[in-house]
């Protein structure tokens, strides 16, 4: 005999206390099949997981506890499965959105693992190309970028003026 669980939507979550199972209806338009698989896989060790198609656009997930449990335990099971389902669906979406970046990083990693270039590669390499273009100075070290001048240090212009004064015979300073 199925009944609703406290705090759970009755149209989506039902419990059968006699069988010790909870029945969830999952909207297939919100949760892809692989997200349901991922969530189900996490629960295989804890309970018996049964998947079915409730209707064309919905999955039915039946979780049967391996150990006898009460309504509170079934409610926790349903809640944890729902959380895992949401996390799986979101992880899958993040992976989809970042596919280009993941592929790029993976390719770079494999490229680095291929080892150093051969002599033929070096011979074919175009060294005339600018090695690095850094107009904003992003690659410059913090020390170089924000180095304070020393208190007694002279600038180039001041040094040049002093040398000129020393060599000028009419200046009177040089002897």
């Amino acid at each position: 005999m199925s009944e609703s669980l406290l705090g759970m939507p009755p149209a989506r979550v039902l419990a059968d206390l006699g069988e010790g199972c909870v029945i969830l209806t999952v909207d297939a338009s919100m949760y892809p099949q692989h997200a349901v698989y991922a969530a189900a896989y996490c629960f295989i060790a804890r309970c018996y997981v049964w998947l079915d198609r409730a209707e064309p656009e919905a999955f039915r997930v039946v979780l049967t506890a391996k150990q006898p449990t009460d309504a509170e335990g079934l409610r926790a099971l349903a809640g944890e499965f729902s959380n895992e389902l949401l996390a799986s669906a979101w992880r899958r979406e993040i992976t989809r959105l970042n596919r280009g970046l993941i592929e790029s990083v993976t390719m770079q990693a494999f490229g680095g693992a291929m080892g150093p270039p051969s002599l033929d590669d070096l011979e074919a390499f175009d060294f005339s190309d600018e090695p690095f273009d850094d107009p904003l100075g992003i690659a410059q070290s913090w020390e170089d970028k924000y180095r304070k001048p020393k208190p007694g240090a002279e600038t180039g212009a001041e040094t040049g003026a002093a040398v000129a004064a020393e060599t000028d015979p009419q200046g009177g300073a040089a002897t």
Partner: peptide, 17 residues
Amino acid sequence: AHELANFALGLTIEQGG
């Protein structure tokens, strides 16, 4: 039957569907 279903589901997921 429960164990068989779990086993079949696990193998299905491991092979990607």
